[in-house]
Amino acid sequence: MPKGRIVGVVAIIAVLAGFAWLAIFGMNNSTTNLPSALIGKPFPEFDLTAVGQPSKRITKEAILGKPAVVNVWATWCRECLHELPTLSRLSKQGVPIYGVNYKDLDSETIQKWMTEYEHPYVINISDPKGTLSLALGVYGAPETFLIDKKGIIRYKLIGLITEENWSTVLAPIYQELLNE
């Protein structure tokens, strides 16, 4: 094989190996800390109903006034179920948690889920068409947002809230919002 051809093959292999290395090790592979264009922007306007109370309208004004956690959840989401103990503990400690029920259409299933599992939501917003979730840039459930007292989105977490990520990431941000 001519020397030029060997150099070409080696170069191609080196480039492919470089791409493979970047894909595996070099790029930020976190799916829980994806950037959001909404950080620093106001929470989207909405006019939806409360879960289980179709005559009760909820708007953005209902979630303003103090720093809070906005948690996007669904009955079909297994991780949402796993994060409930942490969210319930935080709620009992006085952290306001607003739920956004993402694309659940069966009100009977929602009510069964709400009755069967202790839910931590001060307000629970029904988003059956996903309009609010779409405006928030939600990929799926669970996703969680920290908002300040004016409703500015300060942080977005994709995936479930755990004791660890609450204490190491979310709690310090939440405390800063309380101190503002």
Rank of each mutant, 00 (worst) to 15 (best):
I63Q: 06
G94H: 14
G94D: 15
I97Q: 01
L64S: 05
S91D: 03
R57N: 04
A62L: 13
R57P: 01
P67S: 03
V72E: 12
S88V: 12
L81W: 15
N71T: 03
W73Y: 05
K60P: 00
K60A: 02
V69Q: 07
H82N: 13
C80Y: 13
E83V: 07
I63W: 09
C77N: 08
I58V: 15
V70Y: 08
R78E: 14
K66P: 06
I97M: 01
T59R: 04
V70A: 06
V72W: 14
L87P: 03
W73F: 11
W73E: 01
R89T: 01
R57I: 05
R57Q: 07
I97D: 00
V95Y: 15
K92L: 13
K60S: 02
P96W: 00
I63H: 07
V95Q: 13
L64A: 05
P96E: 03
L64M: 12
A74D: 05
G94A: 13
P85M: 10
A74H: 07
K92I: 07
N71V: 05
A68V: 10
R57E: 03
W76K: 02
V95R: 08
K66L: 13
A62S: 14
K60E: 05
A68K: 13
T86W: 00
I58W: 14
G94E: 15
E83A: 07
H82W: 13
I63C: 05
S91W: 04
H82K: 14
E83T: 06
V72T: 11
I97G: 00
L87H: 05
V70M: 05
A74K: 08
R57T: 09
W76P: 00
K66I: 12
G94Y: 11
A68D: 07
C80N: 09
K60M: 04
H82I: 12
I97P: 00
K60W: 02
V70G: 03
E79H: 04
W73H: 02
E83W: 04
